[in-house]
Design a binder for these strands. Sequence first.
DNA 1: GGCATTATCCATCGCGTGTTGGATAAATTC
DNA 2: GAATTTATCCAACACGCGATGGATAATGCC
Lengths: 222, 222
Amino acid sequence: MGGMTMPRRRPGRPRRDENLQTRERVLAAATALFAARGFDAVGLREVAAAAGVDVATVAHHTGTKAQLYEACFARVFAAEKVVLEQAARRVRAAARARPRQTLAGLHELVDVFVDFLEQRPETTALWLRRWLEPHRHADLDQRYAAPLYELVEALLVEAAAAGSLVEPTPHVAVRSLVWAVHGHVVALAADDPGGAAERQRFRAFVHRWLDALYAPPTGGES
Amino acid sequence: MGGMTMPRRRPGRPRRDENLQTRERVLAAATALFAARGFDAVGLREVAAAAGVDVATVAHHTGTKAQLYEACFARVFAAEKVVLEQAARRVRAAARARPRQTLAGLHELVDVFVDFLEQRPETTALWLRRWLEPHRHADLDQRYAAPLYELVEALLVEAAAAGSLVEPTPHVAVRSLVWAVHGHVVALAADDPGGAAERQRFRAFVHRWLDALYAPPTGGES
DNA sequence: GGCATTATCCATCGCGTGTTGGATAAATTC
DNA sequence: GAATTTATCCAACACGCGATGGATAATGCC
C-alpha cells in the first residue's frame, strides 16, 4: 500500500544474455505491431506493453522510434537473407553439378522463398510497407533489397549464360515473381480460410508459370 | 492589423458547382498525400494546406478523417472501375465476334490496366495500403476489390469455357498478375530513371508471360 | 430587401504522442 | 564491502493531432 518500491519485473543489471532476451522480446513485439499496422499507427507505449516493459526501457534498448523500426527491419531481413542465400548456394551447386537443369533449381528456390514468407508473413508486410515509403528510408532500400534481388536475378543470368533458359529482362521477371509471392502472402493473411489449399494452388501456379516461360522447347533437345 | 474580417478566400455560399470544385480540390490533395505517406502519417492540417483551405473546411466537406480517406479511395476506385469495365466490354465483344482470340484480348486488357496505373500511381499506392490493413476497412475490400478481380477472372473463365485457353486457378493467376503490375508501378515511382524503357520492358514481359501460359500449342490446332 | 442557408475561417479543447530526466535496484568490478 | 555500471520504471514535458463551437460573409429564395 505505502510507497514501498516493489518492482513487478526485476530491474537492475542482469547477465548479458538476459539483456538480449529483453531486447529480442521488444523487437519481436515491435515487429509484429509494425507489420500489422505500420510505423505511424503504432505507439511506443503499445510496443512496450506488448513486450511487458515500460516505454523508457524500449527507448533504452533501441533508441528512437525510427531506430527501433530500423532494428526490426534489419532483424527480419537478416533471417530472410540467411534462408535465401543458403537456398541459392544449394541451387548453384546443383546447377554446376548438372547443367541444363536450371528449371528445377528455380522451382526449389521459389519454393523456399514462398515457404519462408508464408511462415513469417510479417516479413512481407514490412517489405511492402517499406516499398511504399521510398522517401523515408530510401538509402536502406538499396542496402537491403538490392542484394536479395540480385541474388535471384543472378541465377537467371547464369542460366542464360549456360544456355538452359532465356530471360531478356531478368530484373523485371524477378520483381514480378517477388510481388506475386507477396500478394499471395497478403491474401493468405487477409482471408485465413483457404489455407493449405490456397498455398498448394499458388505453388502449382508459380511452377506452371516458370515452366511455361523457361521450359526448353519440347521435342528433341538433348 | 485591426480586427477587420478580411478572408483571403471568399467565404459564403458559392454556386453548387463551385462547392464541388472545393471538395474536389480537397480530395485530390488528400489522395496524393495519403498515397504518398499513408493514413496515419498525414495530418488534416496538411491536407487543408495543400488544398488551400482551413482544416475546418475539410471537416465540413468530408466529415471525419476516416470518411475523408474513404472518399479518396472511392474516388480513385471509381476512375479505375470505369476504365477497366470499358476495356472489359470491348474485349468481351471482340471475343464474341471472333472466338479463339482470347489471348489478344488479354493483352489489350492488361495493357489498359498497366497504362492506367502508370498514369495514376496513387491508385496503386492506395490499393496496396488498403491491402496491408485488412482490419481497418475489411468490409470495403470486398466491396471494392472483388468486382474488379472478378471482372478479369471472368474473362479467363469464359475463355476456358470457349476452349481457347486453360487456367486451373484463375483467381491465383489474376492476383499474381495484378500484384506484378503494382510492383512495376511502385518500382517506377521509386527510381524514376528507367521511365519509358522500363515500361516497355514490363509490357514485353507480361505479354511473354501470358503467351507462354496461354498460347495454344503451336502446330496444327485449327 | 429580408431570411434562411451554406461555406469558410479562427480559436480552442482534450488527448495521445515521442522523448527525457531522475530515482531505484540489481549485477559486476575492484 | 564499496564503487561503478546497467536495466528498469515513474513522471512529466512539449507538441501535434483530430475534432468542435462560434463568428462572419456570401449566396439563393421569396
